[in-house]
Nucleic acid binder design. Sequence first.
DNA 1: TGTAATGTTTACCAACCGGTCAAATTATCA
DNA 2: TGATAATTTGACCGGTTGGTAAACATTACA
Lengths: 213, 213
Amino acid sequence: MVLPRAAKTQRRTRIQEEKEERILEAALEVFSASGFRGSTIDQIAEVAGMSKPNLLYYFRTKEAMHRALIDRVLDTWLDPLREFNAEGNPVAEIRSYIRRKLEMARDFPRESRLFANEVLQGAPHIEDELKGPLKQLVDEKAEVIRAWAKAGKIANCDPYHLIFAIWSTTQHYADFDVQVRAVLGQEHAGDGRFEDAARFLERLFVDGLQVRE
Amino acid sequence: MVLPRAAKTQRRTRIQEEKEERILEAALEVFSASGFRGSTIDQIAEVAGMSKPNLLYYFRTKEAMHRALIDRVLDTWLDPLREFNAEGNPVAEIRSYIRRKLEMARDFPRESRLFANEVLQGAPHIEDELKGPLKQLVDEKAEVIRAWAKAGKIANCDPYHLIFAIWSTTQHYADFDVQVRAVLGQEHAGDGRFEDAARFLERLFVDGLQVRE
DNA sequence: TGTAATGTTTACCAACCGGTCAAATTATCA
DNA sequence: TGATAATTTGACCGGTTGGTAAACATTACA
């Protein structure tokens, strides 16, 4: 009998886990570099070191691979925002949020580009995630920031646009890496630009959010 | 005789100008939404209301269309940075730069996404522009900012990362529009988010760059 | 060990895609 | 107006792409 995909939902064998892992890793590599439409199953198969039909044995369609990848990565991607703590010191919380986001841009640029590609092209596959879990989480943290501002702990500012500003400035170093490198030139070959960025951004946001007399 | 593309370089007829205009407009629409690889000539042809071979009569290849589009748009896109004036008041200059960039994100989001798509996927077609004209312009303006900082007119900060921060925060509202809308929800249906963003960003950068005692 | 389920591959298909060609149509201008 | 050049189109081509069918190989397990 051939009931591969149906059986999978019941119990996963060692082989299944290994292969699905390898496929998703390869899919991340390819999708993040070329976007959904720009990527081909053959490319992913080659990176994964498997044949195309073999990939399609584990994921019925290209879309299914993409979806599985999104689902797996989205949670991790939002972790830094989740750690945002209402009880902590506001300035320290914002500072460490920036730092964590920058570390992710440095260490997981493919994940960042995966979402950037997706959102840039109208988010055809993740609309629900944006309007659901993402919005919910941001609403919650925005409320925290608003409370801080009301209590006079930080300057009065629009919490949503603050979050957007932190997202955009930090993810910029992953998504637009080529541009950043091109502008900075050869002398910033290593990871030094991330430290420079951290210094600049922490200062910008901390000073920019200081309560003005 | 059929010498279409050769003749074009000598003098352009009314029809040629009109059609090339229509094609590039359609190309902007399609390329900005799907990236280079994700776009097809058929899509562009349909948007332009012309047949595919007709398009290829004016632009020999898909790449030629893309290149012509990039060349046409890049100059306009860098205009706000060019207007950055060394003689002006530093805070006012930065403030109006932010404002102009935000206006462009609002009024020309397709142009922004065109470049975002390109850079995100490794800038395969605009590498030269990034390392040449763009870097040159940024170097020049970075020097201006550095001089301001040295003269104590603004806080001491890395001028390159300041420019990156302004780019990323403003272009975010064009490139990640879907996400911004999803998070803000229906209540921000109109262009109000741009005014909120302007208020927030101007204040963030102005206060963040104030000279600290 | 045998056998049924799981995993892999080869060969293939229909749709799509970038691009060509030659014929047909339209504009230009002497 | 007529001839010549410029423009437009339909038919087509070879290569690619997402996906399938079925034969073959391997694993798990009674």
